[in-house]
Design a protein around this nucleic acid. Structure first.
Lengths: 243, 243
DNA sequence: CGGGGGGTTGATGGACATCAACATCTGTGG
DNA sequence: CCACAGATGTTGATGTCCATCAACCCCCCG
C-alpha cells in the first residue's frame, strides 16, 4: 500500500479490484481543493448547480429543513465520503449540506467524472459500490427512525458511525472523536435535544457508552452491540468482493 | 413515441437523451421474465446471490425485520422500478423483497448490465439517474419518519406514491388503485395499524382523501398538498435534463 | 463582564402504542 | 347452502414514550 492513501481511496480499495491506474485516474479527477470553515453551507436545498464533492478532511452533514423550521439530518459525511453525488444528475438539489468542522473538499466535475467512469469499468463499479453503500446506510437509518426506541436508536447510530470511522482509520473499538453536539444527534435521530441528553445519561449510567467533550467512548462494546442488535453486514466492509 | 413503451423505458425517457439504440440495448438486457405470486418472497435479507430485477407489472415492497419481529418497509416498488439494484455489488442483500400482488419481473444479469453501461454512456447516466432518484425518495421517506406527525406522514406518503404512479401511467390527480393494506401502511410509516386506521378516518372525515377497497381517492388534492407541504421536486420528473 | 452556545434536570402534556373486543369480508370445505 | 377460519378493518380504554416548557448550569470568548 502506498502511504499516499487518502480516506477515499482507502474506502474504494475496500471494494477491491482497482489498479494503480484506476486510482491515479480517479485522484486526477479531484484536482480543485476547497477549504470551508465550520458552520459554512456547501450546498443549498433547491439550488440548481448540481455540485458534488469528495470530503477529504473533517465532518459535514446533509439535511432538510421543514416548513415549521424542524430539521432532519439525512446523512453524516466523514472523510472519504461523497457529498451531493446524487444531485449531479438532478434539476435541483434535494438537500442542504453544511460543514460541522473546518473541512477540506475536492470538487467533482460531473462530465469529467462520467467520462472517466466510461473509460474505466472497474472504477465505475467501485463508485457504484460506494453509492450503493450510502444507500444501504440510509436504509438502515430509516429502520432506526421507524422502529427503534430512542436508546437503541442512539446506540445503533453511534456504533455505525464508529464502524465507518474505523474503516478510514479514524476510530477504534474503544471509541472515536466526535464533533457532533446533542442538537445534531437530535436532528439526526428525530428526537428532541432534551431527550437525547437523557438517553445519553442513561447509557452512561448503564456503563454502555460515554459521550463527552467531543469524544464517544464505547465502555461496553459487547453490550452495546447486543442492545442495538447491530449487524455490521450492511456496511459491506468485510474485504474485497472482486479479486 | 413507440407504443411498445414499458413503464421502465418510460421512466428512463423522462430523464431524457436516450436514443432508440440505447433503449433497445437496455431492453435486450431484460430477457428472462419471471412471474411471481402475491405474497411470495423475491429476495431474502442476508442471502448472497445478489440478484436484481426490473419490475414490469404489479407491486412489491422491500423491508427489514427486526429482532423483536417488528417490520420496517424501506421502499415500495411499482412498475418501472428496479428491485435490489444496490445489492448486486454487495456481499449480502441488506433487505428482503416480497410481492404484494402477482408480479412480473425481469432478471438483471449484473455483468451484462455493467458491460452495457460501459458501452453506452448515455444509458449509464440514465441508470445512475434512476438510482439517484430512488435514493432521493428514501431521503424524503427518512424525513417523513423523523419529523412529521402521523397524519402529515400519511398524506405525504400517498401523494408521493400517486406522483410516482402517474409518471408510469397508473394514476391521476384524482387517485390510484392501491393494493396496500393498513398493515403495510403501518410498516412503511413506522406506525401501528390501529393508528393508521384512525389517521385514515380523520383524513376521510376532513374531506382530504379516501382509502377504501384498494383505491386511494384524493378528495381535496390542494388541501392535501398544503397539509403535507408536498414539494414534488425531489422526484425530479419534470422533464428531461439532457436534451 | 456580559452574552451565547452547549449541556442538564424537573414538571407537565400529548401523540401514539398497546390491549381488547367486535365487525366485515373472503374463500373453503362440508 | 351453511359453517367456519383467517385476514382485514374499526373502535374504545388505558398506558407510555417522548416533546415541550422552563429553569439553571458551565464554559468560552469578545
Amino acid at each position: 500500500m502506498l502511504d499516499t492513501q487518502t480516506p477515499l481511496t482507502r474506502k474504494l480499495s475496500c471494494f477491491g479490484g482497482l489498479s494503480q491506474d484506476d486510482l491515479a485516474l480517479f485522484t486526477a479527477l479531484l484536482r480543485r481543493k476547497r477549504n470551508i470553515c465550520a458552520g459554512q453551507a456547501l450546498i443549498h436545498e433547491g439550488e440548481k448547480t448540481g455540485a458534488a464533492y469528495a470530503l477529504v478532511q473533517g465532518w459535514c452533514c446533509s439535511y432538510k429543513i421543514l416548513r415549521d423550521g424542524e430539521r432532519q439530518i439525512v446523512d453524516i459525511q466523514i472523510p472519504g465520503d461523497f457529498i451531493g453525488l446524487r444531485s449531479i444528475l438532478f434539476h435541483t438539489s434535494d438537500h442542504s449540506t453544511q460543514a460541522l468542522t473546518p473541512i477540506e473538499v475536492c470538487e467533482i466535475n460531473a462530465p469529467d467524472m462520467l467520462g472517466s467512469l466510461a473509460r474505466r469499468p472497474r472504477l465505475a463499479t467501485a463508485v457504484l459500490w460506494a453509492i450503493s453503500r450510502d444507500e444501504a446506510v440510509m436504509a438502515e437509518h430509516l429502520v432506526n427512525l421507524g422502529r427503534r426506541s430512542a436508546d437503541v436508536r442512539m446506540a445503533h447510530f453511534l456504533l455505525e458511525l464508529g464502524a465507518r470511522l474505523q474503516l478510514v482509520g479514524l476510530g477504534s473499538k474503544t471509541g472515536f472523536d466526535c464533533p457532533l453536539t446533542q442538537y445534531h444527534l437530535a436532528d439526526a435521530l428525530g428526537l428532541s435535544a432534551v431527550h437525547v441528553n437523557r438517553v445519553l445519561r442513561q447509557l452512561r449510567e448503564d456503563g454502555m457508552l460515554t459521550f463527552q467533550k467531543g469524544r464517544v467512548s464505547f465502555d461496553n462494546l459487547e453490550a452495546l452491540i447486543e442492545l442495538a442488535a447491530f449487524n455490521i453486514e450492511y456496511l459491506d466492509q468485510e474485504g474485497p468482493l472482486l479479486r
